[in-house]
Design a protein around this nucleic acid. Structure first.
Lengths: 220, 220
DNA sequence: TTATAATAGATTGTATAAAATAGGCAATTG
DNA sequence: CAATTGCCTATTTTATACAATCTATTATAA
C-alpha cells in the first residue's frame, strides 16, 4: 500500500465537503476565509482554493468580493438533479451490464449487506451515503466510461446532501433497502431492461420522497 | 447595460480557456505557473486559481507538485462526451419545447443566419463555436432548468475543442448547416419528437465525423 | 424625516516571499 | 561497473503582507 500525499488544499476540500454534506455548515451561511483558515490552522490560500473546488462541485457559491456560502437546498434543484441522475445512471448501467464481471456483482452484494446493517447504527447518514455511492459505482464498473462515471459522482455529491438530510430528519429512505436488492437481482440476471427501469424508479422514488419532505419543511 | 466587474482570476480563466480551445496551447504541454503569470502580467495566485477552475471544466489536468497541462484529445473521450450531450440535450430540448416562446425561436433563427455567414470568414472556428453555443442555448431556453443548462455548457466547452479542431483541419462540419435549419423548423412546429431525434442525430453525426478524423490523425 | 454622501471596519483579491516537493545528477559504496 | 544514496535545481504549494472592494453606519443636506 502506497501512502498517498495530500496537499493542504485537498485536505481542506475533504473537511469542508464533509461539513457541508453532514449539515454542520448550514446552507446560505457565509464561509469566511479567515475564520476557516484559523480553525483549520492553515493560511487562507488553501482555503480559497478548496472553496473554488467545492464551487465546481456545486456545493458552494462564490460571489466576487462578497465571499462564499454553502448553496441553498430547494425543491426545484432536487427535481433537476435527480432527473439528471436517473437518465445518466440508467444509461450508464445499461452500458455496464453488457460487460460487468461476476466479481463486481459479488462485491456489490457485500456492500449491500453492510448497507443494511449501517442503517440502524449511530452515524447512519454519513456511512450510509458512502456505502450507497460504492454500491452504485460497483454496478457501473463494467461501463468503462470514466468521464461519465466522474460526472455521476459529482451529481451524487450534490444529491448526497438531500439524501442525508432526509435520512436524518425523516428516519430513512424507507424503500431503499428492498429496491437495492431487487436492482441487484436484475443485474445478476443480466436483465438490462428491468435493471435500468428499477434503477430509474429507485432514483425517482427518492426524488419524490425528498421533494415531499422539503416542501413540507418549506411550508413550516 | 451594466459593465460587469471581473477579477483577474476570471480574466485569466477566459484567456487560458480561449488558448486551449483555439489550440494555441497544445494538449499535454505543461503549463508553468510562473511563465503564465509573467506573460499575463499577474502574480501566480490568479493563475493557479484559473488553472483549478479549468481543471473543473475538464480542460486541464492537475498533478500535485508536478503542475498542470491541457488535457489530451482522444477518440475515446469523444464517444463519451458526445453521447452524454446527445442524451442530456435531447431531454433538455424536449422539456424546453413545451414552453418555448416565439421570441426565443426568432432569436435562434437570427443566430442561424450569422452562423452561416461566419463559416466562410477569417476567424471561422472561434466565432462559429460561440454562435453555435448561443443557438443551442436559445432552443433550450424554455426548459427552465438552470442546473442542467450549466452542465450542458460545461460539456460543450469540452466538445468545442474537438469541433474547432475539426473545423480548422478538415474544413468544416459539413452537415451542420442544413441540420440546424431542419432542427429549427421542427422546433417552430413544436414537433417535439422529430426535433429531439434531429438534435440527437446532429450531435451524433458530428461525433462520428470527429472520431473518424481523430483516428485518421492518430494513425499518422 | 428622508435621502444621499462620507467614512470605518471587515472581507476579499493579489503580490511577494518562504517552505515543501519532485526529478535529475553526481558522489559513493559494493 | 552497477546500484544506491545524497544533494541540487526547478517547480509547485503555502504563508504573510498589502491593496481593492464591499457593507453598514454615521453625518449631512434637502
Amino acid at each position: 500500500m502506497t501512502i498517498e500525499y495530500k496537499t493542504r488544499t485537498q485536505l481542506v476540500v475533504e473537511i469542508l465537503r464533509e461539513k457541508i454534506l453532514s449539515g454542520e455548515i448550514v446552507a446560505g451561511q457565509p464561509l469566511r476565509q479567515a475564520a476557516l483558515a484559523k480553525e483549520l490552522n492553515v493560511s487562507r490560500i488553501p482555503v480559497r482554493e478548496a472553496l473554488l473546488q467545492l464551487e465546481a462541485e456545486g456545493l458552494v457559491a462564490f460571489e466576487p468580493h462578497k465571499g462564499a456560502s454553502a448553496t441553498e437546498l430547494c425543491a426545484a434543484q432536487v427535481d433537476e438533479l435527480f432527473d439528471l441522475r436517473a437518465m445518466i445512471e440508467g444509461d450508464l448501467l445499461a452500458a455496464s451490464l453488457i460487460h460487468i464481471t461476476d466479481d463486481a456483482l459479488e462485491q456489490a452484494a457485500n456492500i449491500l449487506l453492510n448497507l443494511d446493517s449501517a442503517l440502524g447504527k449511530e452515524n447512519a447518514a454519513n456511512t450510509w451515503s458512502e456505502l450507497n455511492s460504492d454500491f452504485h459505482n460497483c454496478l457501473y464498473s463494467g461501463a468503462n466510461r470514466p468521464q461519465t462515471a466522474s460526472l455521476v459522482n459529482v451529481l451524487n455529491k450534490n444529491a448526497d446532501r438531500y439524501i442525508r438530510m432526509h435520512l436524518l430528519w425523516a428516519g430513512g429512505i424507507s424503500k431503499a433497502g428492498p429496491e437495492h436488492a431487487e436492482l441487484l437481482a436484475f443485474c445478476q440476471a443480466r436483465d438490462i431492461e428491468n435493471a435500468v427501469a428499477k434503477l430509474k424508479q429507485h432514483i425517482l422514488n427518492s426524488r419524490d420522497e425528498i421533494k415531499a419532505f422539503l416542501s413540507q419543511r418549506e411550508a413550516s
